[in-house]
Design a protein around this nucleic acid. Sequence first.
DNA 1: TATAAATATGTTAGCGCTAACACATATAGG
DNA 2: CCTATATGTGTTAGCGCTAACATATTTATA
Lengths: 344, 344
Amino acid sequence: MNRDLLKPAPAPTLKDVSKIANVSVMTVSRVLRGKGYVSKEVISLVKEAAAKIGYSPNKLAGALASDKSNLVGVILPTLSNVVFSEVLSGINSALSKTDMQPFFGISDYSLIKEEKLVEGLLAWRPAGLILTGLEHSERTRELLSKTSIRISEIMDYSDTPIDACFGLRHTLAGIETAKHLLERGYRKFGYVGSFLKTDLRAEKRFNGFAETILAAGAQLVDKKSDFGPSSMQMGRRLTKEIIDQNNTIDALYFSNDDMAAGALMHTIANNISVPQQIALASFNGLEFLDALPLKITTVKSPRFKIGELAGLHVSTENKSADSLGTGTPKKVEFPIEITIGDTT
Amino acid sequence: MNRDLLKPAPAPTLKDVSKIANVSVMTVSRVLRGKGYVSKEVISLVKEAAAKIGYSPNKLAGALASDKSNLVGVILPTLSNVVFSEVLSGINSALSKTDMQPFFGISDYSLIKEEKLVEGLLAWRPAGLILTGLEHSERTRELLSKTSIRISEIMDYSDTPIDACFGLRHTLAGIETAKHLLERGYRKFGYVGSFLKTDLRAEKRFNGFAETILAAGAQLVDKKSDFGPSSMQMGRRLTKEIIDQNNTIDALYFSNDDMAAGALMHTIANNISVPQQIALASFNGLEFLDALPLKITTVKSPRFKIGELAGLHVSTENKSADSLGTGTPKKVEFPIEITIGDTT
DNA sequence: TATAAATATGTTAGCGCTAACACATATAGG
DNA sequence: CCTATATGTGTTAGCGCTAACATATTTATA
C-alpha cells in the first residue's frame, strides 16, 4: 500500500474524545492534563475514549492557548566535538526528567549564525534557551533582553550573565596549566590549536597561558593553528609540523584533548619520548584519555554536569528559582582542576 | 536590574504590526511569509513596522492555523557515541538549508523509550520523523501508521521500510569482515562488544560474523561483552581480559572502532605486536582512526551522509518525493566497504 | 443546621495566526 | 473597447486548545 496516497485522516481532537465520553471538551482537557477536579468515573471514561480513538494531544494548540510551551532551545557551536555531545547529553538527561522538549541549532562558532538561531528558536516561544559562551552579538542581546524566559549561558563563566551561567574561567585554565609547566621546569613552549579566532574559549585559554609564561620569562617559540574542527588527525599533523620546524620546544600546549591525543600518537609512531623530549598538556579531561598508553596532563571540564545544570535551570518554574533560597543555582563556577598525567 | 521582576510585556503580534503599517493583518502575514501579492511600497512599510517594534512571528500559532509545522523529530539511541553526533550533524546540515527545525529525543537503545518519544514528538505535529534502526514496538508502528508524515529509518537497511530508509546491512558487514579475516588465515576468533543485547545493529554484525567463521570451520574462542556505552576504555579493559584468558586467539572482532582503538592502546602499552600476535577489526571507519599509530581494519559507515539523506527526505514536500522520478531517494543501501588497515 | 470550602462539570472567549473567499484595480490580448 | 487574467488588499472563520468564570453538588466545620 502506498502511504503517500492515503489522504491524511485528520487527527482526533479533544472534541472527538468528548463526544465519545459524553462530557465537555474542557473536562477531557482536565483529565488529560491531570489538572482541576474530575471524578474517578469520568477520568476512566475519558481515558478509555481517548485510547480508543488514539487521541494525541496537539501541543501546538495547547502551547498557544496557555501561552507556555515546554520547548527548550539549545544552541551549540558544533557537534563535531565530543565535548558538546556530552553537554547535550547532560541537557537531555535533565530535561527528560521533566516534560521539557529540547530542540537545537548549531552556530558553527559564528555569532551571526547564533543570532539567526536565537531569532528562529524564539519564534517557537520556548520556555528557556541554552547558549554556549558569553559572547553574543548586540542584536542577540537585544532579542534576549526583550524576553523573560530562562536563559543559561554555558561552558564559560562570568559573574554577570544574562540570566544564569554554568562553566569555568578559561583564562584561568590557561594560567594554571602554564604555572604547572613552569613549575616542572619547561621554558620553551609551543601551542597547537584549531578553530582559529572563532573558538573564543580556546582563545582565552591560550591568552592566559601565553601571558603567564611570558611573564615568567619563558618563551613561546611557535604557534600552529588551523581552521576547522579540532581532531586527533589535525593534532597529529600540526604537532609533526611544529616539532619538525622547532627543535628547541620542550613543551606543547593544546587547544584540547583531541589535539593532544593526536600529538601523543605522533610521538608513539615516531619514538619521541614523552615527556623527556617533549611535554604535552591540554584541556577537557575527556574520558578516552584514560585508555591512552600515557595519561595526558589536562584540565577537567565538567561537560555533562554543565549540561545538566543548564537543563535544570531552564526547566525550573520562574518564581521559585532565585539565586538565593532553595531553588536551583543560577551561577556555578567550576574550579580549575589540573589532572597531572604522564606527559608533563 | 532583576529581570525576574520585569513583567513579561506580551510579544508584539501581527495585529500590532498591522496597526503601525496601516494595513490589514492578512497583508502583514503575506509580507512576512513572502506569500501572495503585495505591492512593493506596502512590503517595505510592513517590514519597517515589524522591525520597529521587534516583531517575532509566533510559529505555534502559524503552525496551528496552517496545519503544518516545520519541526522534524529525531530519535537517536545515544549521544555518547560519535557515530550519532555525526548523524545528527548530517541531519542538521540538511535541515539548516531549509526552514526545518530539528528537535530530538534519546532512546537509550530502548524500544519502549522510543515509543514514548514517538508519542511525545508526534504531539508537536512535526513534518517528519527520523528514527534509528528498523526495529520498533508494535505500538510505535501503530502510531506511525496513523500519521502521514515523512519518516526516515536510518543506519540499518531494509527493502520494506515504513516510509524511507538509509543505511547498510549490518549482517553483511559482519560477514564481509569475517571473510576478510578468514582469507588472511585467522582461525581462532574473539569478539569484544558493548551494549549487550540492546545494540541491535551490533548484534546483527556479530551474528553475521559468527555464522561465517563457524561455517568456515573456524572457531569463536571467546566473547566479551559489557553493558553500557562503548568506549576506548571499555575496549581496552575487555581486550586485556580476553587476551589474558585465551592465549590461542589470533584475531579480535569489535563491535565498533572505539572498542578496537582501546584494544590497540592495550597492545601498544603492553608491547603486543599487531597483527602478528593478534589481529584487530571493527566497524564504523571513524575519522580519528587515521591518527592512530596503526590503521585499524574496519568497515566504513557513511554517518554524516545518512543524516543528510534522512534530513533531506523528511524536509521534502510530500508530492514530489517519489522513489521514482527526480525526487529525493526513499531507499538508499550503502555497500559494505572494508577498509583494510595495518591491524589484519 | 447553616455556611464555608472543596469537588465536579460546563460555558464563553480567546491565544496568534492563516486558508479561503470576496472584492477591487490594473494589465493584457484580441 | 471589452473581456480574461494578473495583481493587490480586506473580511470571515476557524486551527485545537486552555484560562477564567459560572454553576452545581457534595463535603467539612462550627
